[in-house]
Simulated scan of single mutants.
Amino acid sequence: MQVPPVFIDISLEDQAQELRAYLKGLGAEISEEKSPKGIEDDLHKIIGVCEACFKEGQESEVEIVLNDIVSIMVLIPTDRAENIILAFCEKLTKAPGQKLGEVCLRALWLLYQSLDEKSPMRYPVYYHLLLIAKQTDQVRSIFQDIEHLKQQFNQCPLSGEELQKLYRLLHEVLLKSNQSEQAAKVMIELLGTYTDKNASHAREDAIRCITSAIADPNTFLLDPLLSLKPVSFLKGELIHDLLNIFVSENLAAYLKFYKEHKEFVTSQGLNHEQNMRKMRLLSFMQLAESTPEISFDIIEKELQIKPEEVESFIIEVLKTKLVSARMDQSARKVFVSSTMHRTFGRAQWQQLRDLLHSWKINLTSIQDGMKSVTAAQMEYLSQMS
Rank of each mutant, 00 (worst) to 15 (best):
I84W: 05
I84V: 14
I85Q: 00
I85R: 02
L86N: 15
L86Q: 11
L86C: 06
A87Y: 11
A87V: 06
A87N: 13
C89E: 01
C89P: 01
C89G: 02
E90K: 15
E90W: 06
K91D: 03
K91M: 15
L92M: 14
L92R: 10
L92I: 11
L92V: 12
K94G: 02
K94V: 00
A95G: 13
A95T: 10
P96E: 06
Q98S: 06
K99S: 13
K99L: 05
K99M: 07
L100W: 10
L100R: 11
L100F: 08
G101Y: 13
G101H: 09
E102R: 15
V103P: 11
C104Y: 09
C104K: 03
L105H: 12
L105T: 12
L105G: 10
R106E: 10
R106H: 12
A107S: 15
L108E: 03
L108F: 09
L108H: 08
L110N: 14
L110R: 15
L111G: 07
Y112I: 03
L115A: 02
L115Q: 05
D116G: 04
D116W: 05
E117S: 14
E117F: 07
E117W: 11
E117L: 11
E117M: 08
K118E: 12
S119T: 04
P120D: 05
M121Q: 13
R122I: 03
R122P: 03
R122K: 15
R122T: 04
Y123W: 12
Y123V: 04
Y123H: 13
P124V: 04
V125A: 00
V125K: 00
Y126M: 09
Y126P: 06
Y126D: 07
Y126R: 10
